[in-house]
């Protein structure tokens, strides 16, 4: 008999959309900033996302990988990514120039729970490339400044040359509605005017925190979490108000390939943003 059946599917979630690199410049020696726009203008404007979500970027001939979106949905049309050169795919991205084409699909993941953060004090702690996803939420808060309480930024890097968005954050320091603290582990330039020391050395500088009223967002290298969380717990911020965003191997971004599985959840669907409570609860998170 005729087995064939007309399929009901309309959208193939694995197909990327072509996107053009609008701007590219280095942030540090091994991190570059990419500003891209979906070629189809309607899709570009319809690309709606939350801070903390990620997109899959593909490079012809190299492959596809997940990257946090660093831009804010409050400034639609362009997507921004900070990409560190670590492997083949990122190596291939690094070779691209303005006007080159890449593939983009997304947005994926849960993102930060903006509704729950409304009216709260926002404490953002970032280290190294952790700035990539957290810049999105920072800019979002600043663009919607009246919807949040205090906004505090703690940012650490190994040395001044490795601080991502160094100039951008230095400029932000001038804003009165933002408490911005920058630090470097070591200053090899002699020109650094801010704090020297690991990011946790910034905590004593904070003005009194109202823990129940505070939502803390953390992202950085794996070693950073342990110490930062200790500080946050010392401040008595509730475990489910400490949010962190995690990195996992991903091949699909849509909950099919299995690589990002942790216990029974998929980082790509249920994450990459988790609370510290999730972390205690699901032992494999960090």
């Amino acid at each position: 008999m005729k087995v064939e059946k007309k399929t009901t599917l309309t959208k193939n979630p694995f197909l990327p959309d072509p996107a053009r690199i609008v701007r590219v410049y280095p942030l540090t020696q091994d991190v570059k900033f990419f500003q891209v726009r979906l070629v189809d203008i309607n899709k570009a404007l319809a690309f709606q996302y939350h801070p903390g979500q990620f997109a899959m970027i593909s490079i012809l001939g190299a492959g596809e990988a997940p990257f946090s979106i660093s831009s804010t949905p409050s400034r639609p049309g362009l997507l921004e990514f900070c990409i560190r050169k670590t492997g083949t795919i990122t190596g291939a991205i690094f070779n691209l120039k303005e006007n080159d084409l890449i593939g983009v699909r997304g947005p994926y993941g849960n993102g930060f729970p903006i509704e729950k953060m409304l009216g709260k004090d926002i404490l953002i702690v970032m280290g190294g490339l952790g700035a990539a996803p957290l810049r999105s939420v920072l800019l979002y808060c600043l663009d919607n400044r009246d919807q949040f309480g205090r906004v505090i930024l703690l940012h650490g890097a190994k040395c001044p040359a490795e601080m991502i968005f160094c100039q951008e954050f230095q400029d932000l320091k001038k804003r009165e509605d933002l408490e911005c603290y920058l630090t470097v582990d070591t200053d090899d330039t002699g020109q650094w005017e801010d704090n020297i020391g690991v990011v946790t050395t910034l905590f004593p500088k904070l003005k009194a925190i109202n823990p129940e009223q505070t939502v803390s967002l953390v992202c950085g290298p794996p070693v950073m979490y342990k110490f930062v969380i200790q500080e946050l717990l010392k401040l008595q911020i509730p475990k489910d108000q400490i949010l962190m965003t995690l990195e996992r191997r991903m091949k699909c971004g849509v909950g099919k390939c299995g690589h990002c599985a942790i216990d029974y959840i998929y980082t790509c669907l249920d994450g990459p943003v988790f609370t510290y409570w999730d972390v205690i609860h699901m032992r494999e998170l960090i």
Partner: peptide, 9 residues
């Protein structure tokens, strides 16, 4: 992959 500039991992 080498020719296209992206040797596979």
């Amino acid at each position: 992959r080498v020719v296209k500039g992206a040797p596979p991992e």
